[in-house]
Amino acid sequence: MNRTTRLVILLAAIVLLGTVGTVAVLHAADRSGSRERDRAGGPQVRTGTVTLRSAVGRQLLVRNLAWGPHRDEIAAVPADRPSAPRTASGVKCLRFHAAAGTALCLQAEHGALRDTYRAVVLDSRLHERRRFQAAGIPTRARVSPSGHLAAWTVFVSGDSYAGTNFSTRTTLVDTRTWAIDNNLESFAVTKDGRPYHASDVNVWGVTFADDHRFYATLATGGRTYLVRGDVAARTLTTLHRNVECPSLSPDGTRLAYKKRVPHASPDAPWRLYVLDLRSMTETRTAEHRNIDDQALWSDDSTLVYALPGDYGSDLWTVPADGNGSPHHLMTSALAPAYLG
């Protein structure tokens, strides 16, 4: 065997070994990816067009938390088939809500030294209409039933409602004129029938009745209160104690909210309740786990809310009347909005 033949054989062996190695690596990667998908049991997510005015029936939009290229994107599924493949929009949000062709998307802007945040108002095709700088970490977002008003809450210090060392800022904007109230703490407060002033007032968790009235949480003196807000008069009036993150029912008669309960862990103090606004009667729901979320009404009888899941958060439902039991709705999802 001459030198040339030996070189040819050596080169062929190197190419063969390289090919085998590449195939082995790709096969291992594919198996690893398959194991990850199997382990996650994740939902199918595909790219597509997502709008707020679907022609195919009622839909449910969520922040998709499934691992993959579409994580954190707003995705849509048919409302009656929440386990169906998700259509990802390409729009990423930390918090999201939508109504009547208007969406509110709270986003992070990742910088070299620190993250900043913004609130973006979107049209029915999820295209940006206007953006506003947000003062802190996004935590709550709501759009009024007409789509004419939007409100968002951020943490400006601290990062949890569970403790006492936090401060929030809630902003309200009119999507018709772009008139903005940067801080609802500037509204005049009436507490227990009297004008009230205090430096420790915090307001968060807006839920809209219409374009004139809303409800929210007001905290002061170590206590929380349900307040009714008047947009034009710029007033907040206390209605009930121990109410956080209220959510108004579609018929406008009840509020779902998280309530601190006695003897609960300081790190998990809340349970899900419903308040009848006519009688001011409270009903505890059948969900007995800690709820740190602003629940959403999927209809006049059912609540949707987030609980910790394997990859961030899952969505659950429970009847609003105190009967029944909780049911798992969606894996790896947050910030739901029903449309149509």
Results as ranks from 00 to 15, higher is better:
residue 207 T to I: 09
residue 208 F to I: 07
residue 208 F to M: 04
residue 208 F to D: 06
residue 208 F to L: 07
residue 210 D to W: 08
residue 210 D to G: 10
residue 211 D to A: 02
residue 211 D to C: 04
residue 213 R to K: 11
residue 213 R to P: 12
residue 214 F to I: 07
residue 216 A to M: 09
residue 216 A to V: 07
residue 219 A to T: 14
residue 219 A to V: 08
residue 220 T to E: 00
residue 221 G to D: 13
residue 221 G to C: 14
residue 221 G to A: 12
residue 221 G to K: 10
residue 222 G to F: 03
residue 222 G to W: 05
residue 222 G to T: 14
residue 223 R to T: 09
residue 223 R to I: 00
residue 223 R to E: 05
residue 224 T to M: 00
residue 224 T to C: 00
residue 224 T to E: 08
residue 224 T to W: 09
residue 225 Y to M: 00
residue 225 Y to V: 01
residue 228 R to I: 06
residue 229 G to T: 08
residue 230 D to T: 04
residue 231 V to M: 00
residue 231 V to G: 03
residue 231 V to F: 01
residue 231 V to H: 00
residue 232 A to C: 00
residue 233 A to G: 14
residue 234 R to Q: 14
residue 235 T to Y: 09
residue 235 T to A: 12
residue 237 T to K: 11
residue 238 T to G: 06
residue 238 T to W: 04
residue 238 T to H: 07
residue 239 L to H: 08
residue 240 H to V: 08
residue 240 H to L: 03
residue 240 H to I: 03
residue 244 E to W: 02
residue 245 C to K: 15
residue 245 C to E: 15
residue 246 P to L: 12
residue 247 S to V: 04
residue 249 S to G: 08
residue 250 P to V: 06
residue 250 P to I: 05
residue 254 R to N: 13
residue 255 L to G: 04
residue 256 A to G: 12
residue 256 A to Y: 01
